[in-house]
Design a protein around this nucleic acid. Structure first.
Lengths: 335, 335
DNA sequence: TCGAACCGTCGAAGCGCTTCGACAGTTCGA
DNA sequence: TCGAACTGTCGAAGCGCTTCGACGGTTCGA
């Protein structure tokens, strides 16, 4: 592998000049610049990452901590990860993958060894052990999700309260007077990852404002649980004309269960789902839905991080507004 | 951040001694060792990754290239990734995440800048542009999947031919005389990722050996396509008593379609699926299945890589044997 | 016409670690 | 009893890059 010195010799300049050409941190005459760049190309020079990191105190790597098991759906995590990698590359950074099971230790390790310049943490819980650690660490970070105490931290997420509200409002606008929210498994509410609760709260608040009767029903991620919830729902609320589903795993089973019970969508029942567009599109009928903008969250998280790395200021909280896409599963209730 | 020199001073030894204590590359008296380790603990010393990489010519980072869109199911990719990270950590290595869209350039970058010591590539295609590059690169690598020309490369994967054979054999043993393989989308066969074709070949070969009538039916990953395949199948082969499904996305729709057509599982139709256990377990009835041992492949891939990094020899090809788990979806055909 | 200000480049220091050779001090076999 | 072989430790030389200050050469305003 050629080193900077080889390039310098080849171009007839000093190593420092090569460095400045490559970094653009000092003015270099166009002529010299071209000559150096040509030598770089001819020799196939690539700077040694370790040497660069040592000298510049920047590794150009960011850490991404992904959750293992969780209320988050796996494909969404993947989308995040991919968009983070893609976005990071645009800033000439790479992404180091950490799993949550390394926990606090992992963060301390990658930060303490200067392996990474900055950290993105996905799936932050309300009481997250890592939050105080991130605050102490001398590295910028961005959290995806909101902990209880977000003081001094940069957080980003979909605005789940607004999402709950938007779903309900859409149904209220269509004329529905009784709506149920079929939610995440009970442990997700307990674990207090926050987003499930916030969505439910937004949903209920919007309902009371719109004078719509609304109830919330947690639901395990199994077809059986889905059937049970549907049975309960139809028994307790015969006047139910619409549901909001915030639990990807049971979207299909729920549709099946309602079909079984003789309720056809959207004629007898309107359905709004909070799920990836892909799932909403391939369901029958196509589901009116709000997707988690994983790609956008990832991209924005990286943008925030890069701004911080460059000494810029960023807002503490970034809430992305939900976008409801209307498809075939919602309509006016039958009189 | 304390440096090695600080530790050395604190322990009353030379920096090199600290280094040797930490690396174990030279004998150090137990007494000195303890004293140094204590200083390390007291000062909270963590070696600077860049400096270490520069001096030792080892970054202790491996690259993992993940596919973007592909015939592989996303949760399986995730499982891979997680097991690779976990396994790598056991060897004190970290994992840099690359996406396939950076392609050959990405490999050349991370290898050329010495950012990583070694590379794992997932979802290798039969004619993969990256294969020749990996061969040239001065870094060990492991491919998950088999390219056409694997000469000089280390590859690992589930033995798909054996998988096809095992599925068929299980059905043949039960007494089925006509079996269909419902496979991946046509483009997966075209793209020639290999595994779909190999599974089909193993399936057909086993069928001819067992004197079972067998056909192969590619299927798009949509419920509609699933229904269409089922219709065709039942019309063309009324004597069909069993199917093997190698297409996770349509497992549920297929079951629904067969149910619709009045075929109940396993009484009228036995079903073997190649899919994650999780999916097989939660289906109704529980599906006899072969899972892709993502976790094991990831772990083994890392083991192979580490052996190579340490100068060890490894087999060119590693084929993991399929394990068929019998559940409720297969039984003897009705007479 | 002269000093100030700037431009483009260079040389050298240093980032924090590993590793090689050297060197006392000890052990051991002949 | 003496040299050989070993043990445990040290010092110094880099690893390949960035960056700071310096410096000769121009340019420009007064």
């Amino acid at each position: 592998m050629p080193k900077i010195e080889d390039v310098a010799r080849h171009a007839g300049v000093a190593p420092s000049t090569v460095s400045y050409v490559l970094s653009g941190k000092r003015a270099i005459s166009e002529e010299t610049r071209q000559r150096v760049l040509r030598s770089v190309r001819v020799l196939g020079y690539q700077p040694h990452a370790g040497a660069r990191a040592l000298a510049s105190n920047r590794s150009n790597v960011v850490a991404l901590v992904i959750p293992l098991r969780s209320g988050m759906h796996v494909p969404v995590i993947m989308q995040f990860a991919i968009s983070v990698v893609t976005a990071a590359r645009q800033f000439d950074h790479d992404v180091l993958l950490l799993t949550q099971d390394e926990g606090v230790k992992g963060l301390q390790r990658v930060a303490g060894t200067a392996l990474v310049d900055a950290i993105i943490v996905m799936d932050v819980e309300l009481q997250d052990q890592r939050v105080p650690v991130l605050r102490e660490l001398q590295r910028p970070s961005v959290l995806i999700g909101f902990p209880d105490d977000a003081e001094g931290l940069t957080c980003i997420d979909l605005d789940f309260a607004a999402t709950g509200a938007v779903c309900l409002q859409h149904l209220a606008d269509l004329g529905h007077r009784r709506v149920a929210l079929i939610g995440s498994p009970p442990e997700v509410y307990k674990r207090e990852t926050g987003f499930a609760t916030r969505l439910a709260d937004g949903f209920k608040l919007a309902a009371s404002r719109a004078k719509v009767a609304a109830t919330v029903h947690p639901c395990e991620a199994t077809p059986l649980a889905a059937h049970a919830v549907v049975a309960t729902l139809l028994r307790d609320h015969p006047d139910l004309t619409a549901v909001v589903v915030h639990n990807e795993a049971v979207v299909e089973p729920l549709l099946a269960a309602f079909a079984n019970a003789g309720r056809s969508v959207p004629d007898d029942l309107s359905v709004v789902a909070v799920c990836p567009d892909e799932l909403a599109e391939r369901a029958h009928p196509g589901l009116t839905s709000v997707a988690i903008p994983a790609e956008e969250i990832g991209r924005q998280a990286v943008n925030l991080l890069m701004t911080k790395l460059n000494g810029g200021l960023v807002p503490d909280d970034t809430l992305l507004q939900p976008r409801l896409v209307r498809r075939a599963s919602t309509s006016k209730p039958r009189k």
